[in-house]
Design a binder for these strands. Structure first.
Lengths: 201, 201, 201, 201
DNA sequence: TATGAATGAGTCTTCATTCAT
DNA sequence: AATGAATGAAGACTCATTCAT
C-alpha cells in the first residue's frame, strides 16, 4: 500500500533497469564527481525516466553506494583474485612485481573512478565503512594466502597492511603524479625489496 | 574590466576579517565537508555578514584554497621542521619513531580536516596541484636533510617518497581505523624497520 | 555536455506552461520593467513554480526575448497586415489616416509594453537586432505593397522609412505626451500631407 | 543634526566632488547602462569613496538624474544654439542641412549615452518628465526662432514637432542602423524637402 | 568631511524529490 | 511500472546603503 517503498526488483526487466541506473550513476559520478552529477543526468544516461530512479533507490546517495558495492572489486585490488598456482618464497618477488604492474594498469584504466571514490571515502561515513570492511577482507585473503604458502605467520596482518599500503602509494604515485625527477622502475624495485624484507622470516 | 575587485586587505581590521573568514570556512569545511557548508554558515561562524566574504574571496572555493594554504603546513608533515641537531644513523630510528608519534598526534588533532582536504585533493585540480607542490617541497627538504647527515644518496628521493608514504599510511591506519586485530606498536616497529632498511647503505 | 538542457515542449500541457510563463513574464516586464521584475514573480503570475521556468528558458533574459517574439507583431505596426483591396493614390490619404488611427489605438492598448520594449531595444543587443530585422521586413512589405499599387518606385525604401518614422513619432506623441498646446488633429493632417508629398511622383 | 540630510555643497571643493561623481556616474551609466553600473564603480571612477556619494545624492537614481540634467543639452539638439545671423527662407534648406549634419556628428560622438538615456526615458517617469520639459523648451525655442525669421506661424508648433521627429529618426537611422539598401544622402534630401514643405506658407 | 569596511536583503538559478498521468 | 512535468527549498553571489573610524 505504501507507495514510497523502495522496490527490490525481482523481474528480469526490473533488475536490468536497476543495473542500468547503477552503472550510469557510477560512471558519471566517477567521471565528474558526486556533487557535479545530478539525477536527471543519471536517468538520461541510463535511458530511463527521472521518476523511476526513486522506485529503486532511496535517494541519490543510495545510487552511489550501490555502484560502489557493485564495482569496487573491479577497481581496487583487482589482481588479488589471480590465483598463483605455483607460488613460493623464491618466485614471490617476481609474482609480486607482476601484481604491481597489474595494479598500475588497473589504476590507469579507472583513474577518475578511483579518485572520486577515494574522495567520497573521506567525506562519507557509509562509504568509508564499506571500504574499511572491504579492505579487511582483502587483507585477510592475502594473509591466508601467504600462510598457505608457508610465509612466516608472525604479525602477518600488520605486514600485509603495510605492504598493501606500499603498493597503493606506489600505484598512485605512478599513475597520477609522474614526478619528473623520480625513477619509477627503481621505485618499484625498492618497494618490492621492502615487501620481501617484511615478509621474510 | 570587471566591476568587483577582490581586495587584498592591508589594514589590521581587514586582515582580521579575512583571517576570521578563512578560519571559519576551513573549520566548517573540515567538519562538514565542502559541499555541506554554505557561505552563510561560514559568514555566521566568522561573525561577519555574507556580503563581506566576497570582498576578500572570489568565491566559496577560494575560501577553501586560502584555508588550505594557511593551515596545510600545520596539518601535514608538521614535524619535518624539527631540526635534530644530533642526528646520525645510529639514533635515526629512535628519532624517526618520535617523528612518527608526532605525526600521529597531529593526525588526531586535525582528523576531520585531514580527511576533508584529502577528499578535495581527489576531486579538485587546483587543490591537488597545491599539494603536489607541497609534497615535492617536503620530500626535497627531507632528502637534503638526510644527505647532510651522511645518508646514502643513491635513489634517495625515491626512498624518501616511499618512506613518507609508509608513515602516512601508518598514521591514517592508527588514527582512523583502529582495527581490532592489529597490534599498532608492532606495526610502528615494522614500518621503522622498513624505513631503516630503505635508507641504509 | 551541459547537464541541464532547455526543453522545447511538444505536449499540450508543456506548451501551455511555457506560454503561461511567456505571457506572465512579458506582462510583468512591460508593466514594471525588466530589472524590476524577478523570476519568482513571473512564476507566481504564471501559476507555476520557480523551478519549471528554467526547464523552458535559459535564463530570465530568454523569457523576455520569447515574449517579444511572441507579442511584437501585436504591438508594432499591427495594421500593416490589413490589405486594402481597393487602394490607389486617390484614396491613399484616407486609408493612411485610418491606419494611423489604428496605430494610435494600438499604442494606447499596449502603452507600457511598447515603452518597456523600446527601452530594452536601446540597451540590449539581441533585442535590438530582433527589431532591426523586424523593421526591415515591415518596411519591405510596405514598399512592395506600394509598388504593386502603382506608386513611384524611386527611393521608395527611403521614403517608407521616413514615413514610418513620422507615423511612429506621431503615435508616440499622441499617446504619451498630450502637449496642451498641440492640436493633434492638425498634426495628423500635417503628417499625412508629408507622407503624400513623399510618395507622389 | 540630522546626519542623513543631503548636502548641497557650497564650498568649491565640495562642488568639484559632486561634479566628479555626476560625471563619473553619467559616463559609466551611458557606457554600460544604469543597471550594469554600481555605485562602487562610480565612486572609483570619480576617485572618491563609496560613502561620500550618499552625502551628495539621495540614492543611485539621483546621480543619473543629475547627470542628465547636466549633460542633456550637450547630447540632444546641440546645434539649436547655433545662431544663424543670416537666415531666411531662401538659404534655410542649406542651413538645415548643416544642422542635420551637426546632429549626426553629435549622435555619433555620444552614441551610447544617447541610447542609454533614451532607454531610461522609457522606463523611468522622472527622467521621462524631464525630457518632456526639455523637448517643449527646445521646440518653443525653434518656433520662436522661425517666427522671428518670418516663417508662417500657423500650426508652427506642430510643424516643428514633426520636423524635429524627422531629424531625430534620420540621425538615429544613419548612426545606428546603416541599412545596406538605403541611400542616406538621398534620405537626407527627402527629409529636408519634407521639412521645407512643412514650413512653407 | 571623508573613508571604505560592513551589512543583509534580494536575485537568479539548481536540483533532489514528488506526483499527475 | 513508467514517464517527465512540476515543485520549492536552498545556495552562491551582488550591491545599494550605512556606519565606525
Amino acid at each position: 500500500m505504501d507507495q514510497s517503498e523502495i522496490k527490490e526488483p525481482v523481474q528480469k526487466r526490473s533488475i536490468e533497469t536497476k543495473d542500468k541506473i547503477i552503472k550510469a550513476g557510477f560512471d558519471l559520478i566517477c567521471e565528474k564527481g558526486y556533487y557535479n552529477t545530478n539525477t536527471a543526468e543519471i536517468a538520461k544516461e541510463a535511458n530511463v525516466s527521472t521518476g523511476i530512479v526513486y522506485r529503486y533507490f532511496k535517494d541519490k546517495h543510495d545510487i552511489l553506494i550501490e555502484g560502489i558495492k557493485t564495482y569496487a572489486s573491479n577497481i581496487f585490488y583487482p589482481a588479488i583474485d589471480i590465483d598463483t598456482t605455483e607460488f613460493n618464497f623464491k618466485n614471490a618477488k617476481e609474482l609480486f612485481r607482476d601484481m604491481i604492474n597489474k595494479f598500475i594498469e588497473n589504476h590507469k584504466l579507472s583513474q577518475t573512478a578511483h579518485e572520486e571514490i577515494m574522495a567520497m571515502v573521506h567525506s562519507d561515513n557509509i562509504i568509508a565503512e564499506f571500504f574499511h570492511e572491504y579492505e579487511i577482507t582483502t587483507t585477510n585473503n592475502i594473509v591466508n594466502f601467504l600462510k598457505n604458502n608457508g610465509f612466516d605467520e608472525s604479525n602477518l596482518t600488520e605486514k600485509v597492511h603495510i605492504a598493501l599500503g606500499l603498493v597503493d602509494n606506489l600505484c598512485h604515485e605512478i599513475v597520477y603524479h609522474k614526478h619528473e625527477s623520480i625513477n619509477y622502475d627503481k621505485m618499484i624495485d625498492l618497494v618490492l625489496n621492502c615487501i620481501m624484507e617484511l615478509l621474510k622470516k
